Amino acid sequence: MAGVDRAVPPALTHAGPDRFLWALDKLTTAVEWLHRNDRRDHPPVRPVDRDIPLLVSEVRAEADEVISLRLTSPDGAPLPTWQPGAHLDVVLPFGRKRQYSLCGDPGERGHYRIAVRRLADGDGGSREIHDELRSGSRIIARGPRNAFPFITAPSYLFIAGGIGITPILPMVRTAAARGANWRLVYTGRSRESMPFLGELAALDPARVWIRPDTEFGIPASGAELLEHSPPDAAVYCCGPIPMITGVRVDLPGSGADSLHWERFSAPPIVDGRPFTVELARTGETVEVPADRSALDVIGEVLPQVPYSCRQGFCGTCHVRVLAGEVDHRGRAEEDRMAICTSRATGRVVLDL
């Protein structure tokens, strides 16, 4: 999910550990609601329906449990252009669809690069990439899409946590090429778990702070990360939910101007209640339990249903509502439902 915060004081406080992700996400509910319903931040991502056949031309180990894939066109044709912050929707050989940030050079048309951390307790997408894809494998991608646009600013602070370096790396290179005043703070469990350290070492060392938890004992607070901000900087942050939440809470006390953030995981379902979805075009009815999204359940009967961010922001999965009352938990028109995050009261009829 991508978002934008201005440096104004929100009515939030730090959450303590355990009951952990729920509590942290609950703290930012008010700010997220404002973000999702404020269309001034930036327009929804336009759906990109083209299928791009891609050839895996190289698989490279970048860190513990992290590999990068170099992706080229099978016929050698130039690939569609992209800007920093963009991602691909990758259709894996077994049918799973996953989103991966482009982390190469935006000016390079001959290949794309993505990086994937293996998640042993994930839902299988990362394991499939690590275990099944080899040099010579073929996949289909859709995009590139950009829900995390990189704005022009005189100064930047980039904050990346672990695999969150992937959308940040092209931004850092672009800021450096523009001659902007920039700093990068890169956190992770250990140096061995943090990809692309070699590439970052080739940048200006005075502007880069590598902060592994193993060398500092505890994860960094938001205030500690923001200490490195140039005056009036645009802050770009990507990583785990606790890190982003800490930065958002402490932003008003920093010298930064704005915060632009993206997280890879879907937000926890808070106060979820079961409801029923009727699919008008197919005539099927599905039951959505309290702890699952409508997108997850609908995807089991309609695997082709489009989606991208899975967090209510981009607009790809918004569906017209024909009947029923929607609990809007995403940025959608009143007559549409963001099926990845929004819920319904009782029964809802969708144009699917």
Rank of each mutant, 00 (worst) to 15 (best):
G312S: 13
V301T: 09
S308Y: 13
S308K: 09
D271T: 04
G283W: 10
F313H: 14
I269C: 09
V286A: 00
A266V: 07
E284S: 00
C314R: 05
V321R: 01
R320A: 13
V286P: 01
D271N: 08
P289C: 12
S265V: 15
S293T: 15
G283F: 07
V326P: 05
T285E: 13
F264R: 11
Q311H: 10
C309T: 11
D296P: 01
A280V: 02
A294N: 10
E300Y: 06
P268R: 13
A280F: 06
Y307R: 02
V305A: 10
P268Y: 07
W261R: 09
V319C: 04
E300P: 03
A290G: 02
F275V: 07
I269S: 10
G312L: 04
G283K: 05
V301P: 07
R263N: 12
F264W: 12
A323L: 00
S308T: 02
A323S: 15
E284M: 11
V270I: 14
G315C: 14
R263V: 15
E300T: 07
G283V: 03
R310Y: 00
V321A: 02
E278Q: 11
E278K: 13
G299S: 13
C314Y: 01
V277I: 13
G312M: 03
P267H: 06
Y307A: 11
V326C: 01
I298L: 11
P267M: 08
V288W: 01
R292L: 08
W261K: 00
V288L: 08
E262G: 06
C317W: 01
T285L: 07
Q311G: 15
R273K: 15
E278G: 03
V319H: 04
Q311Y: 01
A280Q: 07
V319L: 10
P268A: 08
V301C: 09
S308F: 14
R292W: 01
V288M: 03
V326S: 04
R281M: 04
A280S: 11
R320D: 13
G283N: 10
H318V: 15
A280M: 03
P306Y: 00
L295I: 02
V301D: 01
D291M: 10
S265Y: 01
C314S: 13
V301W: 08
V277E: 06
Q304S: 13
D296M: 00
C309N: 11
G283Q: 11
G324P: 03
A294C: 10
V277Q: 06
A294S: 08
F275Q: 08
E300A: 12
E325D: 12
S308M: 09
D271W: 12
V286W: 02
A294I: 08
V321G: 04
S293R: 00
R310T: 15
V288I: 15
R292N: 13
L295K: 05
R320H: 11
F275W: 11
A290P: 12
G283I: 07
C309F: 12
H318N: 15
A290Y: 10
V288H: 07
G324I: 03
D296H: 12
F275I: 06
C317H: 05
P289M: 07
V319I: 15
S265Q: 14
W261T: 09
L259S: 02
E278R: 13
A323E: 15
R281F: 03
Y307L: 00
E278F: 02
L259V: 09
I269V: 12
A323W: 07
V270R: 08
L295F: 09
V270Y: 03
L279V: 01
